[in-house]
């Protein structure tokens, strides 16, 4: 029995934030410059009362509406988010109830950002191939828009809200359909991508809500998302090519034998820097962020959804490399057959 991805469905909230909206706020950045630099035209934004768990529920309901997966068949739920509804209970427990999944279903949250989908796949594979579960629903959702100061162009131009639902199930096959995996963690980078307050370490206070402008003219408070863009670029360029080399060695394969490369869709300048550094041919390299932005743990499954479209049915299976990296720092890579 091997674990395999059998379906991926995304959900985007109705609200949108276009480059023209942003250019009106940031005098130094034209609409055209934002598109050229970030590769993003539009981001979707959750409503004030719409949470990550709401969006994940929507994505899952859409997946069930396709008729290819039955609710009763799900025996494990994994929800990846950094924006839970409550400290407790676990969002996945509430989602189990809202989706009407059976009560013999296991449910856990995992708190990871851009690496989260690949970690979720690793957990799902472990559950299935150890015989502990037969059909895992892996949900990803985040609402970074709720953390972002409207006048912080360093992050507001990049991040969009969104959710995805993936079914991982056990199938009879002659070889693994997911894996091998490589993982990595460097908590030394924690400060470089962070929402500092709101947890138990630093409660929100009047002082933490004080607005400050940085040297690039971006405004934020300690309650907002902070990203040290240069530090993240350095981390990424140093780490991702090594992780990719490790992954190909572990899989006993090469870039030539890889059909698709799907990296976390951070932004166009980072993707292009990585593509050049690793000499990945453009035709294998998926760029899927123009109309959704960087949706954190949902970027890889949104890109996969596009590759699993019905038009591709019957065109043969392909080997796709998936690599997530970011907040933590945390990273992970794997191969999936789709």
């Amino acid at each position: 029995m091997f674990a395999r991805i059998s379906a991926v469905v995304g959900y985007l909230p109705a609200g949108s934030l276009a480059n023209s909206d942003l250019a009106a706020l940031y005098p130094d950045w034209s609409e055209d410059k934002i598109l050229r630099k970030t590769g993003i035209r539009e981001r979707h934004i959750a409503k004030a009362d719409e949470t990550a768990a709401d969006m994940a529920t929507q994505a899952a309901n859409r997946l069930f509406a396709t008729g290819n997966t039955q609710r009763e068949a799900i025996d494990f739920l994994i929800f990846c988010t950094q924006a839970p509804d409550y400290f407790l209970p676990t969002s996945a427990c509430m989602i189990q109830h809202r989706l009407g999944l059976k009560t013999t279903c296991g449910a856990v949250d995992i708190n990871l950002g851009c690496s989260g989908y690949v970690y979720g796949l690793a957990l799902a594979k472990g559950l299935i191939e150890s015989g502990s579960a037969s059909r895992v629903l892996l949900l990803t959702a985040d609402t970074y828009s709720k953390f972002i100061h409207p006048l912080d162009k360093s992050v507001r131009t990049l991040f969009g809200d969104g959710a995805t639902a993936t079914v991982v199930e056990g199938v009879q096959a002659d070889r693994a359909q997911i894996g091998p995996f490589v993982f990595g963690t460097d908590g030394g980078g924690a400060e470089n991508l962070i929402v500092r307050t709101g947890g138990l370490r630093h409660p929100r206070t009047a002082e933490s809500a004080r607005e400050r402008a940085d040297s690039s003219g971006n405004v934020r408070t300690d309650d907002n998302l902070f990203m040290d863009g240069p530090a993240i670029m350095t981390f990424t360029l140093a780490t991702v090519p090594k992780a990719v080399a490790q992954l190909m060695a572990a899989a006993g394969t090469t870039l030539e034998e890889t059909d698709l490369v799907i990296l976390h869709q951070a932004n166009a300048y980072m993707l292009e820097a990585l593509r050049k550094k690793m000499n990945i041919p453009r035709e294998k390299f998926i760029v899927h962020l123009e109309n959704i932005g960087n949706t954190v743990s949902s970027t890889i499954p949104f890109a996969l959804e596009g590759e699993l479209s019905p038009e591709r049915e019957g065109r043969g299976r392909r080997k796709a490399m998936l690599v997530g990296f970011g907040v933590g720092y945390s990273w992970a890579g794997t191969y999936v057959t789709i």
Partner: peptide, 17 residues
């Protein structure tokens, strides 16, 4: 010039390349 954080990020990638 527009020597802001995005320019710095892009220059890190350029120099690495």
């Amino acid at each position: 010039l527009a020597w802001d954080s995005l320019a710095v990020i892009s220059t890190i990638a350029l120099v690495d390349d």
